[in-house]
């Protein structure tokens, strides 16, 4: 079947199987490999992307549900050489080590800050509950997100 949807502002028309997941379309057809596959069962959050503005696990979204939808991935955040404030904050706050969870963490944080620009520390923790990090630990990640929130500005 053919579907049309938007990825990072760009219209994409793809021939897909109904059983393809959004994650596989992103990584293997569109070669946007920033989005990671962790567990593949919706428990780790590594594949988090924005679907019509909401954070979702790309590994559980079927191609069948993408027609006309708008997807944002980690590749859509930087403006040329200029990193997105969340990306810069994760570097400045040493909020990553291996980096595998980082794209998902940042997309979840982006969804949070767009909806709630001044979250409390508790609200940040609540938001990233679906994202597992196995090396940095969560403290620096929360600090990075908090720093972006304090700075304000449009994201």
């Amino acid at each position: 079947m053919d579907i049309e949807f938007t990825v990072n502002r760009k219209k994409e028309r793809l021939t897909v199987q109904p059983a393809d997941t959004l994650l596989h379309l992103l990584r293997e057809q569109l070669l946007l490999t920033g989005t990671k596959e962790g567990c593949g069962t919706g428990q780790c959050g590594a594949c988090t992307v924005l679907l019509d503005g909401r954070a979702v696990n790309a590994c559980l979204v079927l191609a069948a549900d993408l027609e006309g939808k708008e997807v944002w991935t980690i590749e859509g955040l930087a403006d040329g050489e200029n990193l997105h404030p969340l990306q810069q904050a994760f570097i400045d706050h040493y909020a990553l080590q291996c980096g595998f969870c980082t794209p998902g963490m940042i997309m979840e944080a982006l969804a949070l800050l767009r909806q709630n620009p001044k979250p409390t520390q508790e609200e940040i923790k609540e938001s990233i509950k679906g994202n597992i990090c196995r090396c940095t630990g969560y403290t620096r990640i929360v600090e990075a997100i908090q720093a972006v929130a304090e700075k304000g500005g449009s994201l």
């Binding site: 919706g42 959050g45 954070a55």
Partner: peptide, 9 residues
């Protein structure tokens, strides 16, 4: 239920 990503879907 689950996580925000799961509740969004």
């Amino acid at each position: 239920v689950g996580s925000s990503q799961l509740r969004n879907v």
